[in-house]
């Protein structure tokens, strides 16, 4: 499988925070969801990919090219939506298209107008009088209208109401109809990941905890309940965040991280978990130790 983003190494540290990544690849043609608690390094990772951290030691290839050498060519092929509104705040959506569209080789005005209409954005209203949600929609519409190969989104859904979120999700699906398109997005709304994400990248304290396909994740990380005497040593050591109460009652309960391997164990019952539940379990565990 070819990759859209290939990180050989990425080291960065400031103000007591460090991000350390070796050999991470974001597959081309798929949606990768970036999750982790606040301060895990999600935004720092995204900013590094966009080469915005000058102090970082990094070796990153994007769409087969090095950012340091071919930055302009690459940025032409990346659509980016950040947490903050990146355009002059007195611009209206129409002006953003008129003045900034020319910077992108594949920008298409008709597509931009259509996207704004579908997202219910008034093209003539200045951004400074728009809500955060509307500004997020403007940014996304513009990013999509530049017809990028790679779409990078930092918390795109944070300010959107459920109806708008569903519309945006559908636009992302539409974008992914092209086989060579890739999305990397960070989010706290794991329900969206449960739907659209193909891969989940989990960061914690500046390190990659895992990068799994969603199928792999859901099959392996499941809630298990089994009588204590039926659980072998290996099974026990794969169960995280065990319940003390269940233990007293002679049972083992918790999140098994190798469920596929132990599926046939006698008297073990398994239950699928959502990405949110998996994330919470992985975080709780670290609080204990």
């Amino acid at each position: 499988m070819s990759s859209a983003i290939e990180i050989k190494r990425l080291f960065i540290s400031f103000d007591g925070f460090g991000l350390q990544i070796r050999n991470l690849s974001i597959p081309k043609g798929y949606v990768t969801g970036l999750i982790g608690q606040n301060g895990a390094g999600k935004t720092t990772l995204i900013r590094s990919i966009l080469n915005l951290h000058r102090e970082a030691i990094q070796e990153i290839t994007i769409l087969g090219k090095m950012m340091e050498k071919e930055g302009i060519t690459i940025k032409d092929q990346i659509g980016f939506v950040g947490e903050n509104f990146l355009f002059p705040s007195h611009y209206s959506a129409k002006e953003i298209g008129k003045k900034l569209g020319v910077l992108y080789s594949r920008y298409e005005e008709a597509l931009y107008d259509d996207l704004l209409r579908r997202l219910d954005v008034n093209p003539r209203k200045s951004a400074q009088v728009c809500s955060e949600g509307t500004k997020a929609k403007m940014s996304l519409a513009f990013a999509l209208a530049t017809q990028p190969q790679l779409l990078i989104l930092d918390e795109p859904m944070a300010h959107l109401d459920p109806v708008a979120r569903r519309k945006v999700l559908d636009l992302l699906y539409e974008y992914m109809q092209q086989e060579n398109h890739t999305i990397l997005f960070s989010t706290h709304i794991t329900e969206d990941l449960d739907r659209i994400a193909d891969y989940i990248l989990f960061l914690k304290e500046g390190k990659v905890i895992f990068m799994h396909s969603k199928e792999e994740l859901i099959e392996n990380y499941q809630f298990i309940r089994i009588p204590r005497k039926k659980a072998c040593k290996e099974l026990l050591s794969s169960i995280r965040n065990r319940s003390k109460q269940a233990w007293k009652e002679g049972m083992v309960e918790g999140m098994c991280t190798q469920s596929r391997r132990f599926l046939d164990v006698e008297e073990a019952s398994f239950q699928q978990m959502s990405i949110e539940e998996i994330m919470i379990n992985l975080n709780q565990e670290s609080q204990k130790d």
């Binding site: 699906y173 109809q177 659209i196």
Partner: peptide, 16 residues
């Protein structure tokens, strides 16, 4: 339907 269009229709991941 293509993998990608069915994913969109059902609101699931392409990989699924």
């Amino acid at each position: 339907p293509s993998i990608r269009s069915l994913a969109r229709q059902l609101n699931v991941a392409i990989i699924t």
